Amino acid sequence: MEKLVIATRKSKLAIWQSEYIKAELNKHYPDLEIELQEFSTKGDKILDVPLAKIGGKGLFTKELEVAMLNGEAHLAVHSLKDVPTQFEEGLQLAAVSKRFDARDAFLSDKYSSLDELPQGAVIGTTSLRRRMELKILRPDIELKDLRGNINTRIAKLKAGEYDAIILAATGVQKLKIENEVNNFLPISTDKMIPSMGQAILGIETTGNKEVLEIVSVLNDNNAHIEATVERSFVDTLQGGCQVPIGVKATIVDEKSIRVQAIVGMPDGSEYIEEDITANIEEYETLGKSLAQTFIDQGAKELLERAEKVAFK
Results as ranks from 00 to 15, higher is better:
239 G>I: 04
257 I>E: 10
248 K>G: 05
229 V>S: 08
216 S>M: 08
207 G>Y: 15
245 I>D: 01
206 T>V: 13
210 E>F: 08
242 Q>R: 11
220 D>A: 05
253 D>K: 12
260 Q>W: 09
258 R>C: 02
236 T>Q: 14
186 P>Q: 10
187 I>A: 02
232 S>C: 03
204 E>F: 08
235 D>E: 12
197 G>F: 02
233 F>R: 10
187 I>W: 06
253 D>M: 09
236 T>R: 14
213 E>G: 09
246 G>L: 00
197 G>A: 04
193 I>G: 09
228 T>L: 02
215 V>Y: 09
215 V>Q: 08
200 I>P: 06
204 E>Y: 00
190 D>H: 14
195 S>L: 04
239 G>T: 01
238 Q>K: 11
189 T>F: 13
209 K>W: 04
200 I>M: 07
260 Q>S: 14
184 F>M: 05
200 I>D: 01
216 S>N: 10
246 G>N: 12
193 I>F: 05
243 V>C: 00
185 L>M: 10
241 C>K: 08
249 A>D: 06
223 A>M: 07
191 K>Q: 12
231 R>Y: 15
258 R>T: 10
236 T>P: 11
225 I>V: 13
230 E>I: 05
258 R>E: 09
193 I>W: 11
216 S>G: 07
225 I>C: 03
231 R>D: 15
253 D>L: 08
206 T>S: 13
217 V>C: 07
213 E>C: 06
217 V>R: 11
197 G>Q: 04
197 G>R: 02
240 G>N: 01
205 T>P: 01
262 I>Q: 12
263 V>K: 06
240 G>Q: 08
184 F>K: 11
214 I>C: 03
191 K>I: 07
194 P>E: 05
194 P>S: 04
256 S>M: 14
259 V>W: 10
204 E>S: 10
240 G>C: 03
248 K>L: 14
234 V>S: 11
243 V>L: 01
189 T>Q: 14
233 F>D: 06
253 D>A: 11
258 R>P: 02
230 E>R: 00
226 E>Y: 10
189 T>P: 15
235 D>T: 07
247 V>C: 03
204 E>N: 06
234 V>K: 12
192 M>C: 00
257 I>S: 06
247 V>N: 02
255 K>F: 13
202 G>E: 04
212 L>V: 10
188 S>T: 13
199 A>H: 02
226 E>K: 09
227 A>P: 00
241 C>W: 09
187 I>D: 06
223 A>Y: 09
199 A>W: 04
218 L>R: 07
217 V>D: 00
240 G>H: 05
258 R>G: 03
185 L>C: 10
226 E>P: 02
218 L>D: 03
242 Q>I: 00
216 S>P: 07
246 G>A: 02
220 D>M: 04
207 G>I: 13
255 K>D: 15
244 P>Q: 03
239 G>Q: 02
221 N>M: 14
214 I>W: 10
235 D>V: 09
229 V>C: 01
220 D>K: 07
234 V>Q: 13
184 F>R: 12
202 G>T: 02
262 I>P: 03
207 G>L: 14
239 G>A: 01
227 A>E: 11
195 S>V: 01
209 K>D: 09
256 S>G: 14
252 V>K: 15
184 F>Y: 14
216 S>Q: 11
252 V>R: 14
251 I>A: 10
187 I>R: 09
225 I>T: 10
256 S>D: 14
233 F>P: 07
208 N>Y: 11
190 D>S: 12
231 R>S: 14
